[in-house]
């Protein structure tokens, strides 16, 4: 079976072609223009992951929301659960870019970090 995965790592948006065996194994990867495309397509076939970017409430800062993200991509199916988790978070200024807001969010092993100082 041939499966096309559009790589989202960079704006080139390579249309990576995967040849999938009857046992769902990847036999061949084609049309990726760099190694990142290969690893993206592989992960995308086995267990898709996404970086989540959102906001949490912040007190005492110039704005009322602090932008945050998962330090690394997390399983795609957990995105909505993480959104519910972050909805109730309230932090206090000052926060520095890179500060950990939630350690090991939902047991993913990935930290939620602040993406700016505020």
């Amino acid at each position: 079976m041939i499966k096309t995965v559009i790589c989202t790592v960079c704006p080139l948006s390579c249309e990576v072609e995967l040849t999938i065996s009857a046992t769902n194994e990847i036999e061949k990867i084609m049309h990726n223009r760099c190694p990142r495309g290969k690893s993206y397509a592989t992960t995308e076939h086995i267990a898709p992951r996404r970086t989540l970017t959102t906001t949490v409430h912040i007190e005492g800062a110039i704005h009322s929301m602090l932008p945050v993200r998962t330090y690394e991509p997390i399983p795609k199916e957990l995105l909505h659960q993480v959104m519910q988790e972050t909805a109730n978070i309230n932090v206090t200024s000052p926060i520095k870019m890179g500060d950990i807001i939630v350690r090991d969010i939902l047991g993913t092993g990935v930290n939620l970090i602040a993406t700016r100082s505020m």
Partner: peptide, 9 residues
């Protein structure tokens, strides 16, 4: 891959 605020910062 950075977010907008990270790039700005």
């Amino acid at each position: 891959e950075l977010t907008g605020p990270e790039y700005a910062q």
